[in-house]
Design a protein around this nucleic acid. Structure first.
Lengths: 359, 359
DNA sequence: AGCAAAATTTGAACCGATCCAACGAAAGTG
DNA sequence: CACTTTCGTTGGATCGGTTCAAATTTTGCT
C-alpha cells in the first residue's frame, strides 16, 4: 500500500460501485446508510465491490448537501488559531465548549485568520451550523461577518453600548471592575495604576481615560469605567491614575510597569484588566524586589486557573467561564430564535496578592 | 431584528435571488465569486436583491461539493475533545499545528468522541481534507478508521512494531528512554521505579514488564523497553523495578507513588513516562517531604513548557513537538503520496529534578 | 453603417450523495 | 387461483452551488 494512500485520482463515487455491483445508486446508498433494509446477498455484493474498488464510504461532502446540517459549531476569533491553545482564558472557555459539544456529539471547527481579508473568507466559507465568536478583540468586525452568514451565532462578551441586539453571553464588566476597585480602596489604597487590555489595534503604551472611552473593545472600556466609577466614589482623583495599555503579553506588561514605576509617586495598587496581565506583572514585581502585597497590591480579572497557582496567588474577579461556554453551545444548538443576551455574575475572589496599603 | 436571527426557514438560495434580480444563476454566482467580470449595473442589482431577501451569501455546503476541497484538516483523538485544551502535550502540539494551518489558510476541525461508535461516525462524516491522528491512546482503532476514509492522514507517534506502513511522525521512544535511564544510572542510581503511561483501557495499578510488552499503546511499550534495556546494561536487575501503570492524571500518579513508597526498599530514582506524570509526582513528593533531587531523582518525558517552570525544574526527554506538528500539517497539505514515516530525534535536557544518588 | 473583436450573460452539466414515490416480485390469504 | 400485503429495488428529483462552451450584446474601427 502506498504511503499516505494513493495520492491523486479518487474519482470513485457511490454510483461507480453501484454500477460495478449491478444495483441502482439508491440501493448502493442504502447499503451504507441503512444496511438492514437491503437483502443480505445484495448488501455483501455491494460491500465487496466497494472494497475491491477502494471506496472509502459515502463522501460526507455529498451527504452534507442533502442533510443540511454539518453537525459542527465554529468558534471564531480575530487572533491567530494558536490563541485557542495558548491563552489561558481561551483554553478554559474552549474546554468548556468542547465538553458541551462532546455531550451532544457536535464537532468543533476553529476559524480564525491573521489578516482581515482572509478572515472574511474563512468565516464565509466555514462549514458550521453556527458560530461562537470570541470578541476579545476586533469584535465588531467579527460579529459583523458572522451575522452576515445568517447562521445562529453568539458573541462571547457583552458590549454594554451595543444595542444592535446581537445574541451575546458575557459578564458585567462594570460591576466586576467595581468589585476590584472597591476591594483595594477598602484596604486603604489611594494611589492606583491600571494595566489595560488593548483599546485599539495600535500597540501598547501609556494612554488616557479619554482614549479608552473611544476603545474599540467594549471590555476594556467597561472595565475602566467600572474602576473609575468606584474610585471616584472614594474621592480618588482618577485623573492622576496612570493607565497603560498593554497587548496582554509579557513585553507590553513589563514595559507598562517600567513606565509606571519610573514616576515619582508610585502606586500601591494595580488594577489589571486580565489575569494574564496580572501574572506577568507579578513576575516583573518579583524581579524588581517589590513585595506583593507588602509594597503593592494587585487584582486581576478573569479567574483563570493559573491565577490560583501563582506566587502569590492572585486576587481576581472570576468570571464563570465554564458556564459561559456551556450556555454558548446551548444557544447555538437549541437555537429557537428566543435567545438574546445574557449577563452572568462575576465574583471577587480574594487571595494573597492584595493586602492593606503600606502607608 | 430577531435575536439569534430568524430561527427556522431559510430557503433562500442563489437561484432565488437570481430570479428576483432577473439574471441567470450563472451570473448570480459570478456576482459573489468573481464580481469583477459582471457589469456594475447588474452586480448592484443582484446585490440589492440579495440584501433585500436576506441572503447570507453562497452557502459553502453547495460550493464544497464542486470545489472538492474543504480547506480544513481534521485532528482526531480517542480522548474527549477537551483533551486538546487541557493536556500540556496536546496543547503544544496543537499550537504548532495551528500555526502551520494559519500560514496556509487552512482551518482545523477537532474530531473526537467518548465512545467507539460515536467515534467511527465522527470520523466517517468529518468534513476535512485529511487527518492528523493523535495516537496517544487507542491508536490502532483510530488509525484504522482514518485509513478507511482514504484521505491523507498522518499518525502522530511512531509504533515500532507497526509495519503496516501507515504514514507517521514520531520520535524514537526507545532511544529517549535510553537517555533517561542512562542519565540516572550515571548519577549512581540503582533503585528504580517506573510510572508508566496507560497500557490498556483497564485503568491504573501496579503492572509488570510482561504486561507492558502486550501494551496496546506502542509508546508505553517502547519507553519501557528503552528504560530496561539501558538499566540492564548497567547490571541492574530489572525484575525488581516496580512498574506502576497510571492514566496520566493526578489521582493515578499519586496512587502509584503511595504504592511505590509503601515498600521497604524505596527507589532513589523515578522514570516517568510523561512530563505530566512527573509533574504530578513532584507534587506528591513535595507533600511527603521527600527532597528532589536530594532523596529521589525523577526524569520526565515529552518536554512540555510546564516542565521548565516546575519546582524544581524537571529533567526530561524533550521531543520536538512543534516540529512534529509542522511536519504533520505539511504532510497532509502537500500530500504527494511520497511521505511515509519519519522519526525525529529526542534530547535529554538536564534540569534540577535529577542529581546524584543519595547512597 | 458594417463587421470583427471584446465583453457579458446564459443555461446545461456536474459535484456526490439522500430521499421517496412507484414498481416488481415474493409471500400470505380466502 | 385471484388478490392483497410485505419486502426490496429502482430511478428521478433534490440539496446549493460552480463552471464553461456557446449565445448574445457592446464596443471599436473604418
Amino acid at each position: 500500500m502506498a504511503p499516505l494512500n494513493s495520492g491523486k485520482t479518487r474519482p470513485i463515487r457511490l454510483a461507480d460501485i453501484a454500477k460495478a455491483a449491478g444495483v441502482s445508486h439508491g440501493t448502493a446508498s442504502n447499503v451504507f446508510a441503512r444496511p438492514e433494509i437491503v437483502r443480505e446477498e445484495v448488501r455483501e455484493r455491494v460491500k465487496a465491490a466497494a472494497e475491491a474498488m477502494g471506496y472509502g464510504g459515502p463522501d460526507p461532502k455529498g451527504r452534507l448537501l442533502r442533510a443540511g446540517k454539518v453537525n459542527a459549531i465554529g468558534v471564531a476569533t480575530a487572533e491567530p488559531l494558536s490563541y485557542f491553545f495558548n491563552d489561558p482564558f481561551a483554553r478554559v472557555m474552549m474546554a468548556s465548549i468542547s465538553q458541551a459539544c462532546d455531550a451532544t456529539g457536535a464537532g468543533i471547527s476553529l476559524v480564525s485568520a491573521a489578516n482581515n481579508e482572509q478572515l472574511a473568507w474563512n468565516i464565509q466559507s466555514a462549514l458550521v451550523d453556527g458560530f461562537i465568536v470570541f470578541c476579545i478583540e476586533g469584535g465588531s468586525r467579527l460579529v459583523e461577518l458572522a451575522r452576515e452568514r445568517k447562521l445562529p451565532f453568539v458573541a462571547l462578551d457583552l458590549d454594554s453600548d451595543d444595542e444592535e441586539a446581537v445574541a451575546a453571553i458575557g459578564v458585567d464588566n462594570v460591576a466586576g471592575a467595581n468589585l476590584a476597585a472597591r476591594h483595594l480602596t477598602e484596604l486603604g489604597h489611594r494611589r492606583f495604576a491600571v494595566l489595560a487590555l488593548p483599546c485599539a489595534d495600535a500597540g501598547f503604551g501609556p494612554t488616557t481615560q479619554v482614549q479608552v472611552e473611544k476603545a474599540l473593545y467594549s471590555g476594556t472600556r467597561d472595565r475602566l469605567r467600572g474602576y473609575f466609577a468606584e474610585l471616584s466614589r472614594f474621592d480618588i482623583d482618577v485623573s492622576k491614575v496612570l493607565i497603560y495599555e498593554t497587548v496582554n503579553d509579557e513585553e507590553s506588561v513589563w514595559a507598562g510597569l517600567d513606565h509606571i514605576f519610573a514616576g515619582a509617586e508610585t502606586p500601591t495598587a494595580i488594577l489589571a484588566m486580565s489575569d494574564r496581565i496580572a501574572l506577568h506583572a507579578l513576575d516583573w514585581l518579583r524581579q524588581h524586589d517589590i513585595a506583593v502585597p507588602g509594597d503593592v497590591s494587585i487584582v486581576g480579572f478573569d479567574g483563570v486557573p493559573e491565577a490560583a497557582a501563582s506566587k502569590p496567588p492572585l486576587t481576581t474577579i472570576v468570571q464563570p467561564i465554564a458556564e459561559m461556554g456551556r450556555l454558548a453551545v446551548k444557544a447555538i444548538l437549541e437555537n429557537d430564535g428566543t435567545f438574546s443576551r445574557q449577563s452572568l455574575p462575576v465574583e471577587l475572589v480574594v487571595r494573597a496578592s492584595s493586602g492593606p496599603s503600606p502607608a
